[in-house]
Design a protein around this nucleic acid. Sequence first.
DNA 1: CCCTACCCGTT
DNA 2: GACGTACGGGTAGGGG
Length: 911
Amino acid sequence: MSPSGRSARDAGTASLSDIGPRLAVVSDSTKGTLLLVDGLSMAFRAFFGLPVENFATSTGVPTNAVYGFTTMLATLLKDNAPTHVAVAFDLPGGTFRTERLPSYKGTRDATPPEFEPQVPLIREMLDALGVVAVDRAGYEADDLLATYARRGREAGMEVLVVSGDRDTIQLVTETVTLLYPRKGVSDLVRFTPDAVEEKYGVRPQQYPDLAALVGETSDNLPGVPKVGPKTAAKWIAAYGGLEGILESADDVPGVAGANLREHVDQVRLNRELNHLLDDMDVEVPLEALEYRGADAAAIHQMCDSLQFRTLRDRLLPFVAGGAEAAPAPTTEEVVVTTDGAVAAIAALPGPVAVHVDGRAGADADAWAIGVAASSASAWGVDLSALDPAEERDLGAWLADASVPKVLHASKDAWHALQARGWDLEGVVGDTQIAAFLVNPDQRGFELEQIVQRHLGVTVDAGAAGDELDLGLGGGAGRTAGERAALVRALADVLDPMVEERGMGDLYRDLEVPLVAVLARMEHAGMAVDAATLAGLQDEARGRQDRAAEEAYAALDGDRVNLASPKQLQEVLFDRLGMPKTKKIKTGYSTDASSLAELNEKAPHPFLSALLAHRDAAKLAQIIETLAQAVRADGRIHTTFSQTVAATGRLSSKDPNLQNIPIRTPEGHRIREAFVVGAGFETLVTADYSQIEMRIMAHLSGDQGLIEAFAAGEDLHRFVGSRVFHVAPEDVSPEMRAQVKAMSYGLAYGLSSFGLARQLSLPVGAAQALMDDYFARFGAVRDYLRGVVERARDDGYTETIFGRRRYIPDLTSTNRQRREIAERMALNAPIQGSAADLIKRAMLGVERRLRDERLASRQVLQVHDELVVETAPGERDAVEAILRDEMHAAGDLSVPLEVNVGVGGDWRTAGH
DNA sequence: CCCTACCCGTT
DNA sequence: GACGTACGGGTAGGGG
């Protein structure tokens, strides 16, 4: 509660953003600015200022305090440009104050469990930001603040103290300003001596006297009854301070005076305890607090692991030598960071003059091409500036497979060049992919980000768009040259990292060659029957509308937005009073499984109508997205990414062709709209049979599973007969379904709880099933245990082909986080090996199609399935190639079985 | 226009 | 108290 009758505004408040300029002006005339922050007190403010439920990583680590604190600090750093910074922390355990008075601060509530784990994260973040954290056992952070504030003041510095503890008011002088949080951490009240006097009626150094009389609830220090800040201030003015008051205690009139006389000891104790030590013997000298800027790699790492997105951009300006802290880097700076050479960016003197020893860094988009012959020289050329002869020469250079080139996101360059009728060959490296392999769990693989991360150089993405601006000015050609130089420098750093991690072969022989395959697939696209799509669209919208009407009718005509989970919650749980479903952040879930569950417990026509509406709306939406994506050539061209899925899978977007429905009749009909294109004969699909189980059999070496696959009979029937001790022909459909769910769940780290839920079994029965399963397939259990253990020791998992995924959370002390990491560790080698296998198969298929001079082409990959569009007369050859190459993609201890289908559309081919 | 939350499609 | 991997993407709703 505010002890003042005045409004806070009277005390001279300022938002963080308007504190800056004023202080910046002042600090110009001083010997620097010292920023001192009370770490825990501000972290607490941040914690309570931001709803913890809205700030957590996907693995459930709460981050609200880290986020709020870091935001606040970033704003302070930006606005005040301090020359020196320190954040002081209280340490667990007692202090000299609790020794003196064990009940000191005794009324504080227990720390919320979500807060505690964020403290080390904040300290890590400070480390990344290059800010010194100080602490001292037996003392409070405030004592450190007081000590450093005094030293800074004596050194002639401007001092800013940021604390939510009112005791720090005593530190305020003409050159020491307190920023005290009013609300949250972004609204700080600025306490100068005048502001203190205006609010409390005393000078800052007298504030402890006032607090001793009034008491401090948060420190569990009682004051004199009936004495509030007004009375205390009046007494202090009248008697010149606490000593004067106590000397004249007998003369103080009234009830308050009597109370004072009764509480003299308490007041003296209060005063003793609220005095901050400003002459501590500190380990870290003032000079060591000098702010030298942040560490880019550490910032990236923190923002990655805490899943901060917008904050990253606000922190990077603090990177030492970063864009904000220093003039825009010149080309020299770019290359100096790698090998000391100096890049000379010049207009391309003619393509023939590009002499390349070793790999060339290259960059291309629709407007320009850049070539870096080495990290010591680069050219950039604006495509519009080329004359026909130059164009021919440059085109030949790009298409020359014997000229090794390294690019960043080379698939994009491939498309840009293709659009001009140029081929890109000889790509031996792609720094985007290299960076991904080095750590696939990071996000942000744009050139700027990778350069920042691995070269430690900040490049400005520029206001206009994606172009780099290294401060050299100039047009697209120059930019491309600069990018090429960066790529060349980056390759020198990343290549050894890839090799060190044992992924050289995977990189050179699998991922990089795959780029061209994917580029051709994207370029080819998939033909679509627009009329079929349009018909489906009408149907789905019709069903959607009817279901909506039905749903409204069930609500007596109330037209609630059926797409709004929020409104649905109101209807279901408030208005209809239905039983609560599983909890989610915003209340109770209305997802399909919850609605189905509700329909069992409390059948209502609204529920079935809602489910039907969801279904139809989703379908209509998918169809609409697809219809929109059909290009002028009547085909859909997705974009595959090799640098998104941390397991090594591909991803597909714009549109995503890897999640086209299949389970329902409507899904089938959507797939029927994907057809063979004009000039081609048919679609052939080939998919791996039970690829993940086969990989598990291989990796675990389980003789039972290996035997099952060798026998070639129905896997789940075989497994079921072993688990239930019956003959294969006596495995009931229910038994088969159970072992199937069990088998598939294994690779995902399924628990008995999850298995029980999926099979609608009691947990005990699910556990018994798991026990029976492992009794017969013990090597699988041993493998799964071992893979997690090994990953914990090594820090990473590995696929059959050496692809790594680093999983640091395996050693997390946070159980939820650790268990999520364990499931990742279980799954990554299996899913990742499957991804490796089909990628190897894709390379094989592409090679065979080329070598055998076939016109058929791969058009789609869906994780364990390949789709090829076959040219007339090539159907059988393609089928054989798919079988051969997918089969031969790996040498496992079980056969890799492939199912092939043929048809005029995707659904038909898929059966 | 951007962000988060929820929901849902695939493997 | 949570409780199966890996994704992309649409809509709602809140905020700038």
